[in-house]
């Protein structure tokens, strides 16, 4: 699942699940949209945030809702607020009411709807565009109930979402129909473009997609023909200038703390012996016989028992 195209966005979090660089990859390090290899979707400066085994439903929900462990680096967080437009683009194998992750687990439409509601309550988005390209895709947004969500799906319930074409050299179907035509549409869209979402809804008609696309705008406040595609794809950053001067004290508290923490080095510095393999006498960590090991315990118990038997025999002989 890859999020984000050629445009620059504030936060692109990629969930990528692939083995494009395996031993059998014909063109390692490349992902093409077409068998004529015109657009390398996996550009040479790509960065991926979640890959391989990290692509799980749990991680996905955690990223959306912001419930991540404290050590999670900034690049793996979705640091959005109530002024951010969020695009969630999902593609993969799915069915009615679910989408599969890793061929091992699946996310349901209810879970996704609740995650979006949590995002809304935590003010993690202003507007959200949800695009899903999978079989019976419409079922995935049917349960959404949070405001400001616009959803697009590649197929209706009861319909399959089909792939575009096969690359005979690798023998695999390489791109889904909806994604293919969406990419074609977006490739002709520049950051200053005035194209609207209504135009985006028109892509991939039934004779191209073989499935009928679905759109849901009842949760969205604006009209699709007045919403620009660039509101979600390729954020055009606006900078607010201020006439007020901001005074930064030369020694901020953070810096003070870092200087306080500096310990003065004591003693001298030197290299240490690199190879200890021939200096056994220098090894401080020589294996010591473990006095509390099970073997020695048994030994002690056995000797105690033997002593007892001997004493008993002596007493018996004395009495006898």
């Amino acid at each position: 699942m890859t999020v984000g195209f050629k445009f620059k966005a504030d936060f692109i979090l990629n969930f990528l699940l692939s083995l494009m660089n395996g031993r059998f990859a014909r063109l390692p390090g490349k992902v093409y949209n077409n068998k004529d290899e015109t657009i390398d979707v996996y550009g040479s400066d790509v960065e991926v945030d979640y890959r391989g085994y990290e692509v799980t439903v749990e991680n996905f929900i955690r990223v959306l809702t912001g419930r991540l462990p404290p050590d999670t680096p900034r690049s793996k967080r979705l640091s959005t607020d109530d002024r951010s437009n969020v695009l969630v683009y999902m593609t993969g194998h799915g069915g009615e009411d679910f989408l599969k992750f890793q061929d091992a687990e699946e996310i349901s439409n209810v879970e996704l709807a609740d995650a979006f509601e949590q995002m809304w309550q935590k003010r993690r988005y202003h507007e959200l565009l949800f695009i899903i390209d999978t079989c019976q895709a419409v079922s995935m947004y049917g349960k959404f109930y949070s405001p400001n969500i616009m959803s697009i799906a590649s197929s209706q319930i009861g319909e399959d979402s089909l792939s575009h074409h096969v690359d005979p050299t690798i023998g695999v179907y390489i791109i889904d129909r909806y994604t293919y035509y969406l990419l074609e549409f977006l490739e002709s869209t520049r950051p200053g473009s005035r194209k609207t979402m209504a135009q985006l809804f028109e892509i991939c008609p039934r004779h191209q997609c073989i499935s009928s696309t679905g759109v849901s705008t009842h949760l969205f406040r604006r009209r699709p023909d007045q919403t620009l595609v660039t509101d979600f794809f390729g954020s055009v950053r606006t900078v607010d200038t201020s006439d007020d001067f901001l005074h930064i004290s030369p020694k901020s508290k953070a810096l003070e703390r870092s200087t306080d923490n500096v310990p003065l080095s004591r003693g001298h510095f030197s290299h240490v012996t690199q190879f200890l393999g021939d200096q056994l006498d220098q090894l401080k960590i020589l294996p010591q016989p473990d006095k509390t090991s099970l073997g020695s315990k048994i030994e002690r118990a056995a000797s105690a028992a033997f002593l007892l038997v001997v004493v008993m025999a002596i007493i018996k002989s004395l009495i006898g």
Partner: peptide
């Protein structure tokens, strides 16, 4: 590199490998 005092203490060393990890463009 150089070590303070010229002595090492293993408790400050950590080592880990992930053989499955692929090296790719990203």
């Amino acid at each position: 590199g150089v070590v303070e005092g010229g002595e090492t203490d293993n408790t400050f060393l950590r080592y880990g490998t992930l053989s499955r990890e692929n090296l790719c463009t990203e």
